[in-house]
Design a binder for these strands. Sequence first.
DNA 1: TATTGTTATACTCTATAACTATA
DNA 2: TATAGTTATAGAGTATAACAATA
Lengths: 159, 159
Amino acid sequence: MIDVDHEDTILRSFILFVQTAYTILKYADAHLYRKARLSISKLVVMRAIASNNGVITPSELAEWTQTERHNITTVVERMKRDGLIRTERNPRDRRFVNVSLTDKGREVLMQAMPVAREIVDQVMSSISEDDAVLLEKSLSALRQSAHQGLEHVAKRSQP
Amino acid sequence: MIDVDHEDTILRSFILFVQTAYTILKYADAHLYRKARLSISKLVVMRAIASNNGVITPSELAEWTQTERHNITTVVERMKRDGLIRTERNPRDRRFVNVSLTDKGREVLMQAMPVAREIVDQVMSSISEDDAVLLEKSLSALRQSAHQGLEHVAKRSQP
DNA sequence: TATTGTTATACTCTATAACTATA
DNA sequence: TATAGTTATAGAGTATAACAATA
């Protein structure tokens, strides 16, 4: 009986987590697009460039965003089309590409940061700092166990 | 100074939440696809049908999944193509469509449920039941504030 | 006129596989 | 041979706008 109750609790918690994640991401995406004409992915790329002294490689972006290199190629392509970033080969080792912000990109990033701040403040307004600290503890644990699961899936998919 | 520290805490918590959500959803999607050849969206639709006495309308599905009706049309189309569900007009009011599981759909759902269970157990294995209860409290608050934000965005987009 | 649902269209994001260029 | 990145291709998911059918 106790085990069944425990199962119910963790299933309910998990479903609530997924629903909450979906709602938050939907809100962040909609608000960011309405106010800054930017997707979350593009903002993350721009922040990564700015945090990396203004230059970053596609491989570093792939690691930063936890995705594959070919997915970076596509988002970089779209952002070049939008005039937000530029790319150039590294002259010392022409295998590498340097991705950097254009003037327009810097301007859009500066306009987008306060919007991102609004989103964070709106979502987090409902919990206290103490609760946020407890939340971080649980989130870290969940993230690590999901990461372990992902590695297991990846290993199983190897031939 | 205290305000700045508070801002730092909530920003860090928010970023951790988004990263955790991304990792969990990626793991769930990959594991579910490898083991049951199913996407999360399709599983959610099938569970919604089963939870609704075996029949549901597209509008009810849209409410269940917090999306728009035309998005239901597309996922229903794909699931019909996969042989998982069938649709028929309601003879009493031909505006309505009844969506139900096929025999294959019921079989796939029965195979997928233990896989979903594995995903939940893997992710939630890292936290205690007490922590899960605390987590639910914070998640409910976050979800509600994000929902409020979404309504605000929607209202602002009206002419 | 209101409601249910679909169609047309386009864009973002992700994934697999094969490929090029450089070292 | 290994590494960085791209291309080709496909599919899922979502959004806007216009539309058809039914009540």
